[in-house]
Design a binder for these strands. Structure first.
Length: 203
DNA sequence: ACCCAGGGTCATA
DNA sequence: TATGACCATGGG
């Protein structure tokens, strides 16, 4: 059992996921902040609200007040997330187009310097907004590997494990991470390792 | 009533 | 480096 056959197993089980569900790179980045430790369904509501209020741009967000607060309240941690959205917006306005010319490593470092953008959020943005071949590791990824009997290491090591075991393919990375989340939500959430089907796959 | 969600930061040891 | 507290609303 390899990570490639795990992908095939997940794909056969759940089908194509077609992530990230967003119309623009900026919308994707906003979603990445808002979905931290939060159900995606509530993020969708928040983003829809922001669209209706015309707040879905960096320029509007840095100037926004109570309107923005009310839109994102549903996603929880909303005081933090409001600051984070503003920090991200300031960052994007300041850097402008040069971000798209940067090499992936520099871009990753730059993203990590933004308040509220940690490893997973940065890597999500790199993969889904900037289309860079970076494998996104999250809590589900670690848990599923654990369920499957793979000795789980730290974040960076797991990322390198996937990146070195798979062809460097942005579309593959996108689907794979989405599939891991799909399976995680379905059968491998917290304290559900016994029901997590991948443990029977013998990796 | 209780557990958890598509994390990150900060203080502490 | 590695834990733990904290952030906060909403769904099961």
């Amino acid at each position: 059992m390899t990570l490639i056959s795990l992908y095939n197993w997940l794909y056969n089980r759940y089908g194509p996921q077609r992530w990230w569900p967003a119309d623009t790179p900026f919308e994707m980045m906003v979603g990445a902040i808002l979905t931290q430790q939060t159900r995606w369904e509530n993020v969708e509501k928040a983003i829809e609200c922001m669209k209706i209020k015309g707040l879905l741009s960096p320029e509007k967000i840095i100037k926004a007040g109570e309107e923005l607060t009310e839109c994102i309240r549903i996603t929880g941690f909303y005081r933090q997330k409001e600051k984070r959205l503003k920090a991200l917006s300031r960052f994007l306005i300041e850097k402008g187009d040069e971000l798209w010319k940067m090499d992936t490593l520099s871009l990753r470092k730059a993203l990590l310097s933004v308040e509220g953008v940690g490893k997973e959020t940065a890597d999500s943005i790199l993969l889904y907004a900037f289309e860079r071949p970076v494998f996104v590791v999250d809590a589900y990824t670690l848990r599923i590997l654990q369920c499957a009997g793979v000795s789980v290491k730290r974040y960076e090591e797991v990322r390198k494990l996937f990146e070195s075991s798979l062809p460097t393919d942005v579309e593959l990375y996108k689907e794979y991470h989405a599939l891991l989340v799909a399976h995680g939500k379905n059968a491998c959430s917290k304290n559900m390792c016994e029901d997590c089907i991948v443990k029977h796959l013998k990796l």
